[in-house]
Nucleic acid binder design. Structure first.
Length: 427
RNA sequence: GGAGGAGUGACCGAGCGGUCGAAGGUGGCGGUCUUGAAAACCGCUGUUCCCGUGAGGGGACCGGGGGUUCGAAUCCCUCCUCCUCCGCCA
């Protein structure tokens, strides 16, 4: 959410900003102006009346104490009370409308974000590692995994449906090793490990920006105000919803493993084979609560921490700065980490690291206060995948495959696999 | 699921329906005293919104929401959370 004052005073800038995100006209800014003005009018009036009632109440108390008659004032105030009640009802309505407009307004991209309408305008910031030269035609992870007996898509669709997978044997073990490996790495860099609920309420989803606009992307529990987490960003960022943190503690860093559940509405036909796009996948997430002055340094640091995982695993990747048209709803700036997939001969997203500035903090009411300073201010929130575990498994299978279809375990993971160095066909 | 109890400021804790934004205490900050520290004593110590260039003025907030009343932290309803006991249960 943007500051109301900022929107009011920069309405043309907001209009251009929406256009740069391919959202021209998506939010009724004229209605915003009108509602905002009406709200001001009502607030001024209702407060004037309340002030009158407060003074009169004191007067009535004084009269009663002196055993004098107060019926005139009392009847007059009854009338005022009615008017106040009407105005308050109107105010609730205007507030609701105004807020629902504000909740659909995206964040303003940072000035360093490349301008452009789609992913073609994204900027490659750096490319790390060389894609391996294969002496044979590399297979897809789906083929490799199925042949090895560690991935079972057919049975997954029997027990649940499409876009689910069963991971078995050494594959399951590798996935669990990856989770531990990532969490250990991040913990060593000062991220506190947290294991949050895997369901969140609608207030939390609103706080981080999944609601109200992206309800169709979420799985909701029937009969409950609960949603399956689409990312650990939601529960972890909402840890401090409606709290004021002490400024000295910033930045506060968390890492969290959760499964992630996404409806993938609107992506029918995309990545239908394999683990790339699933309704459920594992992810280790990094979340930071930062001081506004240093949040962009923290974004570089967070991105580097996610990259470190790819480096330790020896996976070739590149870092891409998303352009204005490709930027997520709440992000002011975002780097995608893309890992090389030999079977697709392309880089695929494996992490997304964003600075939301005060966009989420304002929705979720997350403030900080410096020791000497009187005023509190909104923190900046950041998060990034460190990494998407399912896609990391994909990358390992494909990048570490051998001609015979077996998989070498990256050196860094061997201790997490009890010394196992390869995956061969399951017995 | 059944039966009880409780939710007040950073924390503890008081609060006959009217001057309560809320006593008292703890903690924190500043000061006096002291070579220094402690103790003692004195003072300060919530959030948020609106109007105003400013000084300042005003509104709201005692778990959330609603109601009664001229007036609610105080009365009523409802929801939520926590605690205790019973039942069920991984």
């Amino acid at each position: 959410m943007l500051s109301r004052d900022f929107v009011r005073e920069n309405i043309e800038f907001i209009r251009e900003m929406l256009a740069s995100r391919n959202m021209a006209g998506a939010v009724d800014l004229d209605a915003f102006i009108q509602l905002d003005a009406e709200r001001k009018r009502i607030v001024a009036e209702v407060e004037k009346l309340r002030n009158r009632r407060n003074t009169a109440s004191e007067e009535i108390a004084r009269l009663k104490k002196a055993k004098e008659d107060a019926t005139d004032l009392t009847t007059m105030m009854r009338q005022v009370g009615e008017t106040i009640k009407e105005l308050e009802a109107k105010l609730v309505e205007v507030d609701r409308d105004l807020r629902s407009l504000e909740l659909t307004l995206p964040n303003v991209p940072h000035e360093s974000v490349p301008k452009g309408r789609d992913e073609h305008a994204n900027a490659v910031v750096r490319t790390v590692g060389e894609p391996r030269a294969f002496a044979f035609e590399p297979q897809s992870h789906a083929d490799l995994g199925t042949a090895l007996g560690i991935l079972d898509f057919e049975r997954a669709s029997k027990i649940t449906g499409s876009r689910f997978a069963v991971v078995r044997g050494a594959g399951a073990r590798l996935e669990r090793a990856l989770i531990n490996f990532m969490l250990d790495m991040h913990r060593a860099k000062g991220y506190e490990e947290v294991l949050p609920p895997f369901m969140v309420n609608s207030a939390s989803c609103t706080g981080t920006g999944q609601l109200p606009k992206f309800a169709e992307d979420l799985f909701k529990l029937e009969g409950w105000d609960y949603y399956l987490v689409p990312t650990a960003e939601v529960p972890v960022t909402n840890l401090f919803r409606n709290e004021t943190l002490s400024g000295e503690k910033l930045p506060i860093k968390f890492c969290a493993y959760t499964p992630c559940f996404r409806s993938e509405a609107g992506s029918w036909g995309k990545d239908t084979r394999g683990l790339i796009r699933q309704h459920q996948f594992n992810k280790v997430e990094l979340v930071k609560f930062a001081h506004p002055d240093s949040s962009y340094d923290e974004l570089e640091g967070l991105t580097a921490d996610a990259e470190a995982v790819l480096q330790r695993l020896g996976l070739p990747y590149r870092v891409v700065a998303l352009c204005t048209g490709d930027l997520g709803f709440g992000a002011a700036k975002c780097y995608d980490l893309e890992v090389w997939l030999p079977s697709q001969k392309t880089y695929r997203e494996i992490s997304s690291c964003s600075n939301f500035q005060d966009f989420q903090a304002r929705r979720a009411g997350i403030r900080f206060k410096q020791a000497g300073m009187g005023k509190s201010d909104f923190v900046h929130t950041l998060n990034g995948s460190g990494l998407a575990v399912g896609r990391t498994l994909v990358a390992i299978l494909e990048n570490y495959q051998r001609e015979d279809g077996s998989i070498a375990i990256p050196e860094a993971l061997v201790p997490f696999m009890d010394g196992v160095r390869e995956i061969t066909k399951q017995p």
